[in-house]
Design a protein around this nucleic acid. Structure first.
Lengths: 211, 211
DNA sequence: TACGTTATTATATGGTAGTTCAATAAGGAA
DNA sequence: TTCCTTATTGAACTACCATATAATAACGTA
């Protein structure tokens, strides 16, 4: 009995899943590869090994490796959009409380961690060079910006301040992404707390005290 | 006379250059590939084709493809550091004028263009995943931040303002990088002029009027 | 003009990339 | 239990990857 099989001979060699479930498993494996090795680690071989499936499955479920990459991008935004469109505050919360909740979420451990940020960095560098990814980006990013703009606009309105909403939103989004970039590359140069503080320091001169 | 050669038979098949000159040519070719196709386009084949040399030359001059990538990164910083450490203002210019000159340079066509920004994006995504690149980054980025910190500190000192220099510098650098990121991916969402304006809008509540 | 140094070429090598597709077998339905 | 659908496997294929190295030839020097 050389190389004893770990399971009984009658055990299935693999298990079948619904299309949706398997797609999610492959997306998760893709995220793991992106987090660990960046865009150069996003390969059929690596991802299938990570997901413990054979090489043919990605093409079967996503047509191509780029199809999976677009799905991975959508999954990243999916998580973030929940926090922005449904901040964890009471329904009757003030606009200020909604904004503060969004900022807190952005710099919480769930989003502000090296794995997630390394994924974002890897994706950002490819958007402009990958048509399929760009298409997905346009869809998701529009929603993201709209959510931020509405929140900022609501605060300004509640305080009777007139602001250039598009510009302030762009500044806020840019600062958040920029802080994530710096921290991902060299985490010791700032803390999540300082990054969060930086956002308030940007917005308070424009919107008034927020905390 | 089939397939007539374009040059006389006695013409050299290639020309020799000094090590320094050839290294620069390879770096330029690497930059072009990065600008056009991102990090996935940074390959021996592509770069050598771009530079019109044979495949062995990169290894000969840089040991490996990662060695060339680190040199490319250094070249990008080299250009930017000139503008920061030697802003185009008179020697006796005010700190405010020096700061304004740096900001103007950052959003000038020389730096704020899609090619350059696509290169930065490609590099940022790889720093955390490439030890050789990380080493080069640490060397260059420290100089960059120091230059920004000194300039901000000088303005604050001249105006008798007390600021958290490290935090303000981090905010400024993050905003600049973030704006470049957004603009590179979707240039129609803001102009270079608005990006420049955003920097002043961040700094003026902290340092007072700057323009 | 001939020589010597060495930058450069060109090929070989072993690995890994993404995609295709026929064969397989899991697991629900009958 | 048997059958059928189809998710999944796994090998084949072509293309491209980085690197090593021996042969070549450019060009300054003597």
């Amino acid at each position: 009995m050389p190389k004893a099989p770990k399971k009984s001979p009658s055990a299935p060699k693999f298990s079948r899943h619904t299309v949706e479930a398997r797609r999610e498993m492959l997306v998760d494996a893709g995220l793991a590869c992106l987090a660990r090795h960046g865009i150069l680690g996003f390969t059929i071989d690596r991802i299938c090994t990570e997901a413990k499936v054979s090489r043919g499955l990605i093409t079967h479920h996503f047509q191509s490796i780029d199809g999976l990459l677009a799905a991975v991008y959508g999954a990243m935004y999916g998580k973030a959009l929940v926090a922005i469109e449904n901040p964890r505050v009471p329904l009757n919360a003030t606009p200020e409380a909604r904004l503060a909740s969004i900022i807190d979420a952005m710099f919480s451990k769930e989003f502000f961690n090296r794995e997630s940020l390394n994924i974002w960095l890897a994706l950002w560098g490819e958007i402009a060079n990958n048509p399929e990814l760009l298409k997905e980006h346009r869809k998701q990013y529009a929603r993201y910006r709209r959510g931020i703009e509405r929140t900022l606009e609501a605060v300004a309105l509640a305080r009777g301040k007139k602001i250039d909403t598009a510009l302030v939103a762009m500044m806020f989004v840019s600062l958040v992404d920029g802080l994530g970039l710096e921290w991902c590359i060299e985490p010791k140069l700032l803390s999540a707390r300082e990054a969060r503080q930086a956002c308030f320091k940007l917005l308070e001169p424009i919107l008034g005290p927020l905390q």
